[in-house]
Design a protein around this nucleic acid. Structure first.
Lengths: 388, 388
DNA sequence: AAAGTTTGTAAATCGATTAAACTAACTTTT
DNA sequence: AAAAGTTAGTTTAATCGATTTACAAACTTT
């Protein structure tokens, strides 16, 4: 049973094209949509009418005339529904409530002691319930829940492997869906981060981007042709565990000389123990660097170099349009970016480098949360019920 | 001007679904196609009628009854047209003529002295002309020409960079199209090889595969969701130039410790100079290994190990369904595969490794040629003129 | 020989887009 | 200020491909 072409598919395609244009070029008139999409004015008119009926689009009033009848301007009704985005960390849970445009309207945080799976899920449900309770009314209410996890999930929403949580084979989606009776999407935190950047962050205009989340480890999310690439079993993007030194130290993953053994926050802070004051977190190290401590500067320089080494591999592998660096190391941008750029300048192919943007996340640690919410929103628009 | 949904698109989708099924499940009846695609019998009937009219499908006779009227069996008419596939090597040109199913019906080879771009193109045109001249008659004649090059081409068919040929900025597609007045597709030889394996080789049932061509260098072709991934500017898959030792030897690409400095044929043969008889090619080394020479065995073991080290990076990056190793090293499969598998067994994540197939090309050096032909065939079926 | 199956076509219907005409509302020109 | 020209959006009829339903043809099984 392949996906065949029928009138239904046709309408679905055109309707989502129209909505996409309203979202992207708002405020916009029906005539303008017809002009830039190539659809006829009549088609756009009927589709817009249906979108207004389903409360996803609003007429906002007349726009300025350009020598004829004034156009009626259209807006995406981003408050027609809300999504919950959750980041499940080690010892920590964050959750946000966003509208359909990814604007955060509520947020909450909680610690968890990570003692048992049930206890963590209980806390998780608590956070989500809080967000649900604070959601404003809207025609669609809460459209879904997205959860970013520090590990791998399969398409059924089972957490296959989350070493830092100590989880293996936890049917998380089923557990949450059972409680809330809402669609739930589970995915890796780096994948969520990548999607967050693509939808609401530095990557809105990019279709080939790699998101590199540098925190205690290094996680990566790969977006190709505007879509997350998950690999055949959801394991793609374990670039943190590619080797940059085949005779290097053994990693707990089984490989040797993994990138994250050199360039992660953990690797850096380990080295930082030899520095004055023994900084134990990024902020402390940043303070030290601000005081022009030469050893701190050298350590940051070296970490940037290691990041660059791995990024060159990413560049030569994917030839991406954009690389976005997220995670806790974003705070060190001013010290890390120069050595990263220098390393890439020296070692990468000029033609591959051309047109490549390397940026730090501008979402200030919320890329994963927004990406998780985006999972739910995307699923909402893809569902046949709304059939946009 | 986006691609919108209209009746034309609808028909195009369904028609290619029908043709795809005829190709894949031939011989097959109209009723069976309707059953497995979900299209109605009437729709299948009219589409098949049009495909027969355009000579792409044939009725081959009645099949066995399963308790009712006998079905009329359909076949893809693979001799309706022919494609030329060319491999442009360093000092060497190969060309094949294939039918629309990728069966090789003619082939030729030629040497070139690589003295000037014009001289090489002249030779190239000669080979293609020979293939064209030997092509049987068919309703569509020669549908196109595909050329695999040892370098990078952009979407206009300009050879941007081919260091081993010494080419830079050669408008190869324009030159060949001008001469033959036929559609020409230019792409990297590894990309062609990947497509060849996907269409006609070990990867026919796979949608996420990585083709690794190990010859003098290491080239890679990445197929994701059944499609070649080319990167934003055509440079994806330079995995041969990812570093596996960040303090290693400098590579001519500008990077350091590149995989191909360790695991390519060239790297191996360089080491082989210390062996008895100083083997200068793969065949000579194979002979030495067959005589149970321990140093040769050790060298092959080491090369397999290096290949494995890089393949683990590929696996952790892409989580592919299949990895196909091609190129001149295929002849050494019996010595290389064990150390490769051992290395992967030891160092890769069990869950990522699960279900992964690692194979050597079974197309015996013709994956690039077949892939090149496949470029032309794919373009033929995608062209609006045929509008399958 | 009758009943049941399966294949493939034919005729009528449906539904979404399109093309063309039209109304509405505005600006510019005379 | 009236006339002419522009632009926005709707209405109406036409088109076209898939679907639904019906049916004829050609089998096998009972």
């Amino acid at each position: 049973m392949t996906q065949t072409g029928d009138l239904n598919l046709m309408k679905q395609i055109n309707k989502s094209i129209v909505l996409e244009h309203v979202k992207k070029h708002a405020p916009i008139s029906r005539a303008k949509i017809a002009e830039i999409t190539g659809l006829t004015k009549a088609t756009v008119s009927t589709l817009v009418h249906e979108l207004i009926d389903s409360r996803l689009v609003q007429e906002i009033g007349e726009g300025a005339s350009s020598g004829g009848r004034k156009p009626m301007m259209l807006l995406f009704n981003h408050t027609a529904g809300y999504a919950v985005g959750v980041e499940l960390g080690v010892g920590h849970i964050s959750a946000v409530l966003t509208d359909l445009a990814g604007h955060i309207v509520e947020h909450t945080e909680a610690a968890h002691s990570n003692d048992s799976v049930d206890a963590v899920i209980h806390r998780l449900i608590g956070c989500i319930e809080e967000m649900r309770g604070r959601a404003p009314d809207g025609p669609y209410g809460i459209v879904g829940i997205g959860i970013g996890i520090p590990g791998i999930a399969d398409e059924r929403g089972h957490v296959l492997f989350a070493p830092n949580l100590g989880w293996e084979g936890v049917p998380l989606r089923a557990r949450i869906e059972e409680h809330f009776r809402l669609p739930v999407v589970i995915d890796n935190e780096a994948n969520a981060g990548a999607l967050g950047e693509k939808e609401f962050g530095a990557g809105v205009n990019t279709s080939h981007l790699i998101y590199v989340s540098v925190s205690s480890g290094i996680g990566t999310g790969v977006i190709i042709n505007g879509q997350l690439y998950r690999g055949v079993s959801g394991f793609s993007g374990e670039i943190g565990h590619t080797s940059i030194e085949f005779n290097g130290r053994a990693c707990r993953c089984g490989n040797v000389g993994c990138w994250e053994l050199y360039a992660s926050e953990q690797a850096m802070l380990q080295q930082a123990q030899m520095l004055p004051g023994r900084p134990t977190d990024v902020a402390a190290l940043a303070r030290l660097a601000e005081q022009d401590n030469p050893e701190a500067a050298a350590l940051l320089d070296q970490t940037g170099y290691y990041l660059g080494v791995g990024l060159i591999n990413v560049i030569n592998t994917f030839n991406p349009e954009q690389i976005i660096i997220g995670g806790s190391m974003v705070a060190l941008k001013q010290w890390l970016l120069p050595p990263i750029l220098q390393c890439i300048q020296q070692r990468s192919l000029p033609l591959t480098r051309a047109g490549l943007e390397i940026e730090f996340s501008a979402l200030r640690g919320r890329s994963t949360l927004l990406g998780a919410a985006s999972f739910a929103i995307t699923r909402f628009f893809a569902s046949p019920k709304v059939s946009v």
